[in-house]
Design a protein around this nucleic acid. Sequence first.
DNA 1: ATTGCTGCAAACCTTTTGCAAGAAT
DNA 2: ATTCTTGCAAAAGGTTTGCAGCAAT
Lengths: 153, 153
Amino acid sequence: VVGTIPEVDSSRIEGILDLLREGGGRVTTATRAVVQVLAAADGHLTAADIAQAVRQKHPDIHDSTVYRVLDRLAELGVVTHAHLGARPAVYHITNEHHDHLVCESCGTVVDVPPGVMQPVARRVARDYGFELALGHFALGGRCVRCIAGAGAG
Amino acid sequence: VVGTIPEVDSSRIEGILDLLREGGGRVTTATRAVVQVLAAADGHLTAADIAQAVRQKHPDIHDSTVYRVLDRLAELGVVTHAHLGARPAVYHITNEHHDHLVCESCGTVVDVPPGVMQPVARRVARDYGFELALGHFALGGRCVRCIAGAGAG
DNA sequence: ATTGCTGCAAACCTTTTGCAAGAAT
DNA sequence: ATTCTTGCAAAAGGTTTGCAGCAAT
């Protein structure tokens, strides 16, 4: 078939929208659109990325609405965001826990499995009574490509 | 003695100012003041903290000047900053390398020794070719006090 | 009919920048 | 004298908010 639209797991989407309704919320065009964009995304999107994608079909859904939808979804626990240092935060549907490496040169985000940070979490819990919010803060550095390309990214 | 002013290692300060001059830079009131504040600080200060402290003696040194001084000092490598997720970055004089835990409830920053993150750095270098910028990004979570106090911070 | 959600505009906060005047060398 | 720095104002970039109207339940 030519021009197929990426099929998104629509049962997962409906599940999320139901959750929203169960919490006394309303399911609107904006909500649906944001959830669809997130469900179709392979990587991590900034709020601006999401807003831009949403606007391709719904040109006058505003950034502020996207932020508000993301907030609501975060409260439900179905969306998670990660802080990338100086760069805008990225959002994704909550899935198996993972951490993020962000390249400070080119912005690439790489997911890393939970095992990488868990020993650290245990150690700071033991030594400092500090409870790490795994996955919420990225680790910064330089990706392979930027190291190879040297200088800039 | 009553009312002693915290003695700051003035030779270290002079060393830094000399470095600045050697690089073709000028040593100004603002430079001196920022360096003094940083040298006297025990913890980590935001740019706003530094600017406020500087203004107690020099009321019309502006935030923008403080940012520019910090930039210059960073280029010399004598000042380092760390990103704290959603909170403003914190600056300190470059010392033995360390990482930071930031409490997302109360903002407390705890230093942790390099050994905590070094295994992670080695692992992501090996597995992803990714070179971690140790100390540049904080780890987020909740500090002991906020866990104890539950709810908010 | 409720009352939650949206568009819009405007604010907020941190950080950066353009420019002409001022100061360190 | 040179040119690096500063003050100021303004902008930039990401995110939040107040409010009146609209829409999902």
